[in-house]
Nucleic acid binder design. Structure first.
Length: 608
RNA sequence: GCCUCGGUAGUGCAGCGGCCUAGCACUGAGCCCUGUCGCGGCUUAAACCUGGGUUCAAAUCCCAGCCGAGGCGCCA
């Protein structure tokens, strides 16, 4: 009864041999006489032939089997007939002429189709996730994730990193993301939190002397979901002692090389580097997509003397006028420009001004406010030519950059779309050429973003908050600024960005209690509060905390990108929907009153 | 909390005041067919998210709700 082969491994070499396969019926093609059944497992698809002249009884049984039934079939591997080879199938040169068939289980008609290119709605997919996961593409993604995790473990172990588990039940933290909370039955009225990341524990491990640590760790955050944000996600968490930014960059670059090698993607190291300030100014984002060339420029000086109140008002409020040259986009239809305006407003810009470059001048409703000298200056700064479209946002620097940065992404999308259309046109004139999916992911534009600001001012209270987290070390040369000008302090923090997605984030940590105390006081934590929240950590450093640094790599995002998507649900076996629910098991669920009583919890939920 | 888009057979789409007795494809059921591989042919079953309203007439327009997706806020 035992299977001898998988559905993906039989080739010409096996011709004449006996084989027993197990799997699910992908499809059945009944020709009245001969019946073909494609049997599928996670390794592939094999065609099994039921021929009445070969074995009448077996053929008879195969007449009544259906999609997704589970079979075990035994027979002889034989070559397919002349001209019947299926080149799209790994096993397309052979087939099995079946001697026996045993039905291991019947199956209801599946509510979604087990096909790569017939995709049901997100809702249906999650409700029947176990069926969705039968689709070969999903199996490949899950396999890819496994292989990447293996590669990471191997690489890190070989480089002296120890995988150490940290607790899942931890102390709730009021800062940062909202915690998932777990009641303690034996400690009435008290709660654990599920960890947002192993951050504090890995720092403690450094103090304990485990100078190289890693963990493939589940992280949990009770925040709203996005395509690239799930309530639970996985991080390759790394920390190393007696090391600084350059050391951790080397480790991560080596790791990324190994990980992408899993998918046969060669990458160049070291990665490009950009400061946070440059990234914001040039690309309007702290996670710029560097596959796109378009750069923002600053035309504040050029328009400063023009009589255009929209620009002048913004400049007067210590704002800037940023400009994006959408090359060759002058012919962009008005409704698409309107979409860009709406997009800019979504990102808090007051508006989006635009001008077409014609005969070396600006053609626009705002052109009358800008005299020839100003126009020339703008065109010069933007390096614009006839046929280009210039887009302007005048606002506070962060808003102007961010809004125009979003416009930049949208413009790039439009450009790729029209490029694809052109290619399709030229391709359709050539025969037999089909566009390949992989082309879109051919570039792997990694970049380190460094030198983030240490603090951000809260607009409402005007007080300082930690931009990243309060355990980041200020840059060495900025430590004295902590006392004089905290707003100018840059931190030894860094992100790794890949194709517009933040893949990793990390920092050099504060190991000196006196600096830590200073940081706490700048963000308005007095000694008592700091002691209550993070006392154990500060205490630990007083017993000889080594200098150390680390990163947390978003594994799901990384695997998703390697798999050619930006949706992390595609690489998580059982993800949640947008409302953080699971349509399959219907979690989260009510607790019955006995359980609540046991936990000393009374509910206060208003339900309509 | 807010904004945008969507909800039509099992699945994916079309229809967007009367030509709707709601169309198409896949799926399902049944019959025919000995070389298919998205088999083919014939037959057949199966749907307008809920509740109000407008109208002579609503899948279609309006309002409220529910559900889903994308985004803003949020994510130290």
């Amino acid at each position: 009864m035992l299977r001898t082969h998988t559905c993906g491994e039989l080739t010409r070499k096996h011709i004449g041999k006996k084989a027993t396969l197990c799997g699910w019926i992908q499809s059945r093609r009944d020709h009245g006489g001969v019946i073909f059944v494609d049997i599928r497992d996670r390794y592939g698809l094999t065609q099994v032939v039921f021929d009445p002249s070969h074995n009448a009884a077996t053929h008879k049984r195969a007449e009544h089997v259906g999609r997704e039934w589970v079979l075990i079939v035994a027979g002889t591997v034989r070559s397919r007939r002349e001209g019947m080879i299926n080149p799209r199938l790994a096993t397309g040169e052979i087939e099995i002429i079946s001697d026996t068939i045993e039905i291991l289980n019947k199956a209801e008609t599946p509510p979604l189709e087990i096909e790569d290119d017939l995709i049901a709605s997100e809702d249906v997919r999650l409700k029947y996730r176990y069926l969705d996961l039968r689709r070969p593409i999903m199996q490949q993604r899950i396999l890819l994730k496994h292989n990447i995790m293996q590669a990471a473990r191997t690489f890190l172990s070989e480089n002296g990193f120890l995988e150490i588990e940290t607790p899942l039940l931890v102390k709730p933290t009021p800062e940062g993301a909202r915690d998932y909370v777990v009641p303690s039955r034996v400690n009435p009225g008290r709660f654990y939190a599920l960890p947002q990341s192993p951050q504090l524990y890995k720092q403690l491990l450094m103090i304990s002397g485990f100078d190289r640590y890693f963990q493939i760790a589940r992280c949990l955050r009770d925040e709203d979901l996005r395509q690239d944000r799930q309530p639970e996600f996985t991080q390759i968490d790394i920390e190393m002692s007696f090391a600084g930014q350059e050391d951790i960059f080397l480790v991560v670059e080596g790791l990324m090389k190994k990980i992408l090698a899993v998918a046969n993607i060669p990458i160049n190291t070291p990665f490009q580097r950009l400061t946070y300030a440059d990234a914001m100014n040039k690309y309007g984002s702290d996670k710029p997509d560097l596959r796109i060339g378009l750069e923002l420029c600053d035309v504040t000086s050029a328009v400063a003397n023009a009589e255009f109140s929209v620009f002048n008002t913004a400049i007067a409020k210590s704002g800037v006028v940023k400009c994006l040259n959408a090359t060759s986009c002058a012919s962009l239809p008005r409704n698409e420009i309107d979409e860009l305006i709406t997009l800019a407003k979504t990102h808090h810009a007051q508006g989006l001004a635009w001008a077409k470059v014609t005969k070396g001048t600006l053609e626009s409703s705002i052109a009358k406010y800008l005299d020839t000298t100003v126009q020339k200056a703008i065109i010069n700064i933007a390096k614009a030519n006839d046929g280009d479209l210039l887009l302007f946002v005048a606002d506070k620097p962060k808003i102007a950059c961010t809004a125009l940065g979003q416009v930049r992404l949208s413009i790039a999308q439009k450009m790729t779309k029209s490029q694809k259309k052109k290619e399709e046109k030229t391709e359709s004139s050539n025969t037999n050429t089909r566009s390949t999916k992989s082309a879109a992911q051919s570039e792997w534009a990694f970049a380190w973003i460094t030198d983030f600001p240490m603090f951000a001012r809260n607009e409402e209270t005007q007080s300082f908050e930690a931009e990243h987290h309060p355990f980041c070390m200020p840059k060495q040369e900025h430590i004295t600024l902590l006392d004089t000008a905290p707003e100018n302090v840059l931190a030894s923090t860094y992100d790794l960005v890949l194709n517009g997605m933040e893949l990793l984030s990390g920092s050099v940590r504060v190991h000196k209690p006196e600096i830590q105390k200073k940081i706490f006081s700048i963000i308005g934590l007095n000694e008592k509060e700091a002691e209550k929240k993070f006392g154990f950590l500060v205490d630990a450093y007083t017993f000889g905390g080594p200098p150390h640094c680390g990163v947390g790599i978003g594994l799901d995002r990384l695997v998703a990108l390697v798999a050619g998507t930006t949706d992390i649900r595609e690489v998580i076996a059982f993800p949640k929907n947008k409302a953080a629910q699971c349509p399959m098991d219907e979690s989260p669920a009510d607790l019955d009153s006995l359980q609540l009583k046991d936990l000393h919890i009374k509910l206060n939920v208003v339900r309509p």
